[in-house]
């Protein structure tokens, strides 16, 4: 499936710790993204999802620990949002060519892959939030990345659009053979389309196959009511997989057993 000559991980973090203004935002994070793999970061607001992504991208320096990127790694990054000043006259086509000269046929192909071929001539400020997300996705594809990093690609997209978007991402992973690291707060749509889920709340609460994570007590502690809704969704999903002969429950998620009272130390941090 993957067309990569190298088989090692695209990105690895070991013991990644980040302290900002006295607060431990990320605490000893181990994360691995392999070629052709979709890894989804989930977690409540302020869990450090975006910060972890920024550390993986090299935009923030870790306080401790390491981020290892495959030598020569090309990353296609899709930020959460983009604020382009309205005074800058810029069509979508022009926007796509700002980072490197790109042939217009490649641009058209990337736009088509992201499902927004018709927007090429529109001013970037005039398109909707959901359309901008897709343009950003097309832009991320232009460098033929080994790794796609998508920070909340579902923002500003309605539920129907989200399902379509995640299907599209899964397709892109297949057609480009790239790994995907994505951040989401929407559990429902993401769970069915990811290989690995990392549940983050300052530290890694649990990680592994989506169905294992969804049964993990820490996951339920974090998401509560929403987790139950998800279980219903997954139940439905199980059936479709069962007809494919896919093995459903079983392999244990890689869940942390060391620190189940993690909320308390964090409180102490704030008071100290």
């Amino acid at each position: 499936m993957s067309t990569h000559p190298k088989s090692g991980p695209l990105v690895e973090t070991h013991g990644l710790t980040l302290v900002l203004g006295g607060r431990t935002v990320l605490n000893r994070i181990d994360l691995t993204v392999n070629p052709g793999e979709i890894v989804t970061l989930i977690g409540p607001n302020g869990a450090g999802k975006t910060t972890l992504v920024r550390a993986v991208l090299g935009l923030v320096k870790p306080t401790a620990g390491v981020v290892k990127r495959m030598p020569g790694l090309r990353i296609g990054y899709m930020p959460q949002r983009l604020n382009i000043d309205a005074t800058l006259p810029l069509t979508v086509r022009r926007f796509l060519g700002l980072w490197r000269p790109v042939e217009s046929t490649r641009m058209d192909r990337a736009l088509a892959e992201a499902g927004v071929a018709h927007l090429a001539g529109s001013p970037v400020q005039s398109i909707s939030g959901g359309e901008l997300q897709r343009v950003l996705l097309a832009r991320a594809l232009l460098s033929e990345p080994h790794l796609l990093v998508l920070d909340e690609p579902d923002q500003g997209v309605d539920v129907h659009g989200q399902a379509e978007l995640f299907d599209r991402i899964a397709d892109l992973r297949r057609s480009h053979g790239c790994g995907v690291l994505l951040v989401s707060h929407d559990l429902h749509t993401v769970m069915a389309r990811t290989d690995k889920v990392v549940c983050l709340n300052g530290h890694v609460c649990c990680s592994g196959h989506p169905e294992d994570v969804s049964r993990h007590p820490e996951y339920h502690a974090l998401f509560g009511r929403h987790a139950d809704q998800l279980a219903v969704y997954l139940h439905h999903h199980d059936h479709t997989h069962a007809t494919d002969g896919h093995v459903l429950p079983g392999s244990d998620g890689d869940c942390c057993g060391h620190d189940h009272h993690h909320h308390e130390p964090e409180e102490e941090h704030r008071h100290g």
């Binding site: 810029l90 700002l98 980072w99 460098s143």
Partner: peptide, 19 residues
């Protein structure tokens, strides 16, 4: 010109792209 435009659009994106 082109690189300044890229930085004007978004500094993080420009950094990730190696500018």
């Amino acid at each position: 010109w082109r690189r300044l435009l890229a930085v004007t659009v978004d500094e993080d994106l420009a950094r990730v792209e190696g500018l």
